[in-house]
């Protein structure tokens, strides 16, 4: 237990360093763009006074180090500045739009793990057989198209041609739910509306599945290759020599060791989901961070761009810490690090 705590503490420290690096990187990108950020943000018709006032509020007249100091100080206080696009604090905007995206990403992540890992395990268990070949081709196909192509195909097939799922939105239009956490699945339960919960879930499934398809493929391919490697280990032959069924060997003796190298990479795939959510939200008119993100990018809304990237990166890093914890739970070598060293 103690070593898990120290592993997490160590990981948090690295995360802080990386997040610090992200802030420098984003800050630099935002400052090296050609032209006056204030002028770009306000557009060519703004007066010189307006631009000067904005330069003052953005601290653009100070040296770049001072600017960065302001930026970090504000960030640590949870202040990401005012969005020039919505005229509201960036933090407020993100708090409004991010939950819908996270809800999508979390369900997609669930699909990725709950479908991808078993598919990979089946392929490894029947390696070289027809199931393996079929899974290989299917997973290679799913990773070969961006999420928006899958979204288009799925929406045509399962919303238009066979109306199994809603075409767009988060919940049926006749149901109105007071936003508390802004996670629709949670808010409907808080409101005690089971019908609302089911409707929200119904709306969530197709976009989440479209988003998860390439992740499912990645996870399955990764699991297969790691598990095939595990199958060459002496402890699998040992399990065979004890007459355990192939099924039991796959599910108990080979799968768990193969997860250790897989999980870390699956954490990275989770990051890809956060980015790809931008592609899926567009098609399903999902009120998440995507429309806001693309909007602020097109408006050259500096504060909002920097803030959004910082928050998304922080979310991703947190997800990776969770993955590391899971790896520690599965891998006794990490749990008992102090004895083995």
């Amino acid at each position: 237990m103690k070593s898990i705590v120290s592993a997490v503490a160590k990981r948090l420290a690295t995360t802080a360093i990386v997040l610090f690096g992200v802030s420098i990187l984003i800050f630099l990108i935002a400052r090296i763009i050609p032209g006056d950020p204030a002028r770009i943000a306000l557009g060519p018709r703004a007066t010189v006074e307006q631009v000067e006032r904005m330069r003052e509020t953005l601290h653009l007249n100070d040296s770049i180090f001072v600017q960065y100091g302001y930026f970090v100080g504000d960030f640590l206080r949870g202040d990401l500045g005012i969005s020039l696009y919505t005229n509201r604090p960036v933090m407020t905007d993100i708090a409004q739009f991010l939950p819908a995206t996270l809800e999508l990403v979390l369900l997609a992540g669930f699909f990725m793990v709950s479908i991808g890992l078993p598919l990979g395990a089946i392929a490894a268990r029947y390696r070289g057989g027809w199931a393996d070949h079929t899974i290989r081709i299917i997973t290679l196909l799913t990773v070969s198209a961006p999420a928006f192509v899958w979204a288009v195909i799925l929406v045509l097939l399962f919303s238009y041609y066979t109306p199994l799922f809603p075409i767009a939105g988060r919940i049926h239009e006749t149901i109105s739910i007071a936003p508390v956490t802004r996670f629709m699945l949670i808010d409907t339960l808080i409101a005690g509306r089971l019908d609302g919960f089911l409707s929200a879930l119904h709306h969530l499934i197709l976009p989440a599945f479209a988003l998860s398809l390439s992740g499912i493929g990645q996870a399955a391919r990764l699991t297969r290759s790691n598990m095939v490697e595990v199958y060459t280990q002496p402890y699998i032959e040992m399990a065979q020599s004890y007459g355990f069924s192939e099924r039991r060997i796959a599910s108990k003796f080979a799968f768990k060791p193969s997860l250790i190298p897989s999980l870390t990479i699956i954490g990275l795939d989770f990051a890809a989901l956060l980015g790809n959510a931008f592609l899926v939200e567009n098609i399903f008119a999902w009120p998440g961070i995507s429309r806001y993100g693309v909007g602020v990018i097109l408006q050259k809304d500096l504060n909002a761009i920097v803030g959004t990237v910082m928050i998304i990166s922080a979310t991703f890093l947190i997800a990776n810490i969770v993955v590391d914890l899971l790896v520690a739970v599965i891998n006794p070598r990490i749990r008992y690090a102090e004895q083995s060293d």
């Binding site: 990051a271 890809a272 980015g275 959004t308 990237v309 990166s313 890093l317 990776n320």
Partner: peptide
């Protein structure tokens, strides 16, 4: 640092 920004988001920014 580069790897900890989701790929598409970095390119978008």
């Amino acid at each position: 640092v580069f790897l900890s920004i989701p790929p598409l988001v970095l390119a978008l920014a």
